[in-house]
C-alpha cells in the first residue's frame, strides 16, 4: 500500500480536537453526520482549491449526511475519510464505505467502551472508595484512568484510520478491538468483586455481623435482578424499593 501523504501537525491537532465534539449537533436524522464533517473539515482545507474549491464543498456535503458510530471510534472513520478525500477516491466508494462502517464501529465501541472500559473505571473508583480513598483520590482514579483510555482510543483511531484509508477493516481486527472487551470484562469482574463488599462496608460503617447481613441482602438483590434482567431494569427496581423505604420513613 502506498503510504499516505503526511498531514501538517496543526491539521492533525485541529481534527483531533474537533473529534471530542463529534456529537455536538446529534440529532435523530443525521445522527453524528454533521459532527463527522465538522471534525474532518480542517483536513478538507488541503483539497485542491482550498476552502473555495469545488472538491472542498463536495466533501463537506458528502460528510454532513447521516452517519452513526460509537463517538470514540468515529475517529477511525474520520481518519479513513480524510485520506480517501485527499487521495481523490470516487464518491461512490466513499459513500459505500460510510454505509458499511457504521455498524461495526458502533458495535465495537459499545462493547469496548460502554460495556467495558467505563464500568471497569467506575468499579476501580468504587474500589478506591472502599479502600478509604479521599474524594480527590476517588475522582482522580476515575477521571484519570478513564481518560487515559478515552484519549488514547481516539488518537489511535484517527491515526489508524488515516494509515489504512478505506481498507480500515484491518484496523477493526486489531487486538484492542478484538480481544480488548474480553480482557476488560474479566478485569471488571475481578475489580467489581473486590469493590462492592468494600463499598458496602465503608457506606454502612457496620461491625462485621450486621455487615454480613447487609452483604447477604445485597447479594440476594443482585441475584434476583440477574434473574429478572429480561423483564425489568435493575435500577428501576432500586428506585421502587427506595421509594417504598422513603414513604415508610415519612409516614411511620
Amino acid at each position: 500500500m502506498t503510504p499516505p501523504r503526511s498531514l501538517p501537525p496543526g491539521t492533525w491537532l485541529h481534527v483531533f480536537a474537533r473529534l471530542f465534539a463529534v456529537q455536538g449537533s446529534y440529532n435523530y436524522e443525521a445522527m453524528i453526520g454533521n459532527g463527522i464533517a465538522y471534525a474532518a473539515e480542517p483536513a478538507f482545507r488541503l483539497l485542491p482549491g482550498g476552502r473555495d474549491g469545488e472538491a472542498y464543498r463536495a466533501a463537506m456535503a458528502r460528510h454532513s449526511r447521516y452517519f452513526n458510530a460509537h463517538p470514540y471510534l468515529a475517529a477511525l472513520a474520520v481518519g479513513a475519510l480524510v485520506r480517501a478525500e485527499l487521495e481523490g477516491e470516487q464518491p461512490d466508494r466513499v459513500e459505500r464505505f460510510r454505509t458499511a462502517c457504521c455498524g461495526p464501529l458502533g458495535a465495537a465501541g459499545d462493547r469496548l467502551v460502554w460495556a467495558g472500559w467505563l464500568p471497569f473505571c467506575s468499579a476501580l473508583a468504587l474500589l478506591a472508595y472502599g479502600l478509604g480513598a479521599s474524594a480527590a483520590g476517588v475522582l482522580f482514579v476515575f477521571v484519570g484512568t478513564y481518560n487515559v483510555g478515552h484519549v488514547a482510543l481516539r488518537a489511535w483511531g484517527l491515526r489508524a484510520g488515516y494509515r489504512e484509508g478505506l481498507k480500515v477493516a484491518s484496523a477493526l481486527a486489531s487486538p484492542v478491538l478484538r480481544t480488548g472487551p474480553l480482557h476488560v470484562a474479566r478485569a471488571l469482574a475481578a475489580v467489581a468483586g473486590a469493590a462492592l463488599p468494600l463499598v458496602l462496608l465503608r457506606l454502612s460503617g457496620a461491625p462485621l455481623r450486621p455487615f454480613g447481613l447487609a452483604l447477604g441482602a445485597a447479594a440476594l438483590l443482585a441475584v434476583a435482578l440477574t434473574r429478572w434482567q429480561a423483564r425489568v431494569d435493575g435500577w428501576r427496581v432500586g428506585v421502587a424499593l427506595l421509594l417504598l423505604f422513603f414513604l415508610y420513613s415519612v409516614v411511620r
Binding site: L225, T226, W235
Partner: peptide, 13 residues
C-alpha cells in the same frame, strides 16, 4: 440505601 445500591450494581456488573 447502601444495600439497594450495591445490589443493583452487582446485578449490573
Amino acid at each position: 440505601v447502601a444495600v439497594l445500591a450495591t445490589g443493583v450494581a452487582g446485578g449490573a456488573v
